[in-house]
Nucleic acid binder design. Structure first.
Lengths: 206, 206
DNA sequence: GTCGAAATTATACAATTGACTAAGACGACT
DNA sequence: AGTCGTCTTAGTCAATTGTATAATTTCGAC
């Protein structure tokens, strides 16, 4: 009896699949989803065209796996960022750091979303990711509202989350079209405002 | 001597061109830019395939004209909205009305933007439209800041404009993926906040 | 009604597309 | 070394693509 609990597969399978998914992400950045063909993809992955069919069955399925893998990583990162006990301003600053550094990441994410606008199955996944993202934020924002004495203001936690998320998305969207006007100014003002709140919170604690 | 100042063209030329551009917009809503082919387009326009080449030369040129025409209309509407002497809250409410009613319009605009992410010529046009949009807003926002006693707050006019624009874009983006969570709540809170400011402004004037 | 330019149609074409298959290479096991 | 399933390759296929062109129709000016 073969004692292997699972059927042995050649070590290369996962490796090659990964190369395809990586290549797809690079091409999303370089040419956008509409410009990706099976041949370009195989070329970029340094693999044979036939493997697209062998591993994924179709381009549709491949894109779906790209979406799955990418959004999983996205969620992991978001959760890690918001789950720390650090005061909100630190999380905000980390998020703004991503906003500046991760341009390719953002291009991938928005290309996937644009693709999803016209594919119900993809849309559902994108919607779930958004929900998960908001959920990861909510506790941190709720905490911040208390810490910064905003809890009895005009905006509920849910409204604050919406405000924060949409501003972020809007900024990314504009940057994809080469628009940066006003971004730094707004973000600097928010940072300054948060810093003042944080200072006040620290003072009150002493 | 023929006294026609311009060579006579069949009356149908402009009409047919318009049918193509209209059809392209409908298809942007229905299937997205990546799903538009010359044949689908001719079919949707109720015209012959050959006319795409006859009138536009190429699909690229056709899309460019769609972008031009659409953004021109967009700018006209934005300018008209912000150029009135009405208090800011009315303009805000009108804009929020568009946000709810003009879903197809938004889909067209975002598809064109997604298309532009990977085409420098399109990107430049989109960037210019964004600038023009902000410009149209700026005066109205600056006025509002005075009227609502926010002029000496933490945010400059430019920062306020960025905030307003990005929140709008973020909301539209989320809705394209079927996400509506928190939108109404945030918008209602903003409306309430603006209404209070407006009331105060009217009272102070009496 | 005839003429000629403009508009429209039908058709053709080369190139590219996603999908598929048969044959061979590889690599871990006995 | 031999075996067997996995992986990889090269090549094929029908369908679709954007573009082009030749033939036809339309329609206002004369």
């Amino acid at each position: 009896m073969t004692t292997q609990p699972k059927p042995i597969r050649n070590a290369n399978r996962g490796e090659t699949e990964r190369r395809f998914l990586d290549a797809a992400e690079r091409l999303l950045v370089e040419v956008g989803y509409a410009g990706i063909t099976a041949r370009k993809l195989a070329d970029e992955a340094g693999a044979n065209l036939g493997l697209v069919h062998y591993y994924f069955g179709s381009m549709e399925e491949l894109f779906l796996q790209v979406l799955e893998r990418f959004t999983n990583q996205l969620i992991v990162r978001q959760r890690a960022m918001y789950a720390t006990p650090a005061p909100y301003i630190e999380k905000w600053r980390e998020a703004m750091g991503y906003l500046d550094q991760d341009r390719p990441y953002q291009k991938i994410w928005f290309e996937l979303q644009a693709m999803a606008w016209n594919r119900p199955e993809f849309r559902a996944r994108v919607a779930r990711v958004h929900d998960t993202w908001r959920e990861a934020m909510r506790a941190a924002v709720a905490e911040a509202l208390v810490r910064y004495q905003l809890a009895d203001g005009e905006l509920s936690t849910e409204a604050w989350v919406t405000l924060i998320v949409t501003v972020n998305e809007g900024i990314i969207l504009e940057r994809l079209s080469g628009i940066e006007r006003g971004h730094d100014e707004l973000l600097a003002a928010i940072d300054k405002w948060l810093a003042a709140k944080e200072r006040k919170a620290v003072d009150a604690r002493n």
